[in-house]
Design a protein around this nucleic acid. Structure first.
Lengths: 147, 147
DNA sequence: CACAAATAAATTGTACACAATAAAAATGTA
DNA sequence: TACATTTTTATTGTGTACAATTTATTTGTG
């Protein structure tokens, strides 16, 4: 068997599984907030930049309008945000958090720490984690360079 | 703004984006083989272990029957494999590659190298890559420990 | 100004992905 | 042997994702 085709060696497969497994660990933490993982990262972006356009949100989350439009409509239904078409440029839709959407942030405050505890119950090797993040950043830069 | 909730710091988000972006790089390489990414990893597993059961494939790919059953039916339609219910234990379905499915392996032989070239056109730092894979393996072990 | 080109969202169609449940078969145990 | 439990796969329902197309609007250019 050619080594190259062994599943064990597929670097993408590892990221793919890791990503799905971390999302699985998020699920019980996000459920009390009424958020899915995708909804959570959208809210993270909006807590940083309220009033952002769908276009800018799309670039930030690496999700296209086909994914975002239904997601944002659902979050609007939940009362977390408002989708408002710009008066200056009617092609653009800005996403504004409601008071409820802003308030949810404080409830989310402990999610990152809880997630870390869920994944690393025996604590984190800070040096190793730092190196890992650096490697991820470098890889991500390469991957998205022509987007 | 609390640092912990910044999108930039979400480790999962990086894996999630990286995974999707690598799959995007795979797409043009897999299209000539008539495979999606999910179909590709299924075929990788089957080229290693022909005749494997759906259950074992599920464990290997970290995908459940709700994902695998329709995928395997589609690959069967494409003539790459046969789904055969076991005679010894009729609950079990074994997946057997057809000649066409086996033959596809040689066409896939260059995919891994082409993917690396697509992502790292300036070459790979082997030492850094090795460290990265080690970190991924460690993280994956932690993530799937209670599955 | 007229109109081609570009831009931003939304829509449509296809392909996952998982939770929950169902169905069928095998296993364990009184 | 009866029958509850477990195991394996399939099904249903919900929620992403993305490619391709459409629609509406704005920008660029002669």
């Amino acid at each position: 068997m050619s080594e190259a085709l062994k599943l064990e060696h597929q670097i993408c497969f590892k990221h793919y599984v890791i990503s799905k497994e971390i999302i699985r660990h998020y699920k019980p933490l996000l459920e009390p907030l009424g958020l899915t993982y995708t909804g959570y990262i959208a809210m993270l972006a909006l807590w940083e930049q309220d009033g952002i356009s769908v276009k800018r949100l799309s670039k930030r989350l690496y999700l296209d309008s086909g994914t975002l439009t239904p997601l944002l409509k659902k979050l609007e239904q939940q009362g977390l945000l408002l989708r408002q078409r710009s008066v200056k440029d009617e092609r653009v839709v800005h996403i504004h958090l409601t008071e409820s959407g802003k308030a949810l942030k404080s409830e989310a405050e402990r999610v990152p720490m809880k997630l870390i505890e869920s994944i690393f119950p025996d604590g984190v090797d800070e040096a190793a984690a730092g190196a890992h993040v650096a490697a991820l950043n470098q890889l991500m830069t390469l991957l998205v360079r022509d987007r």
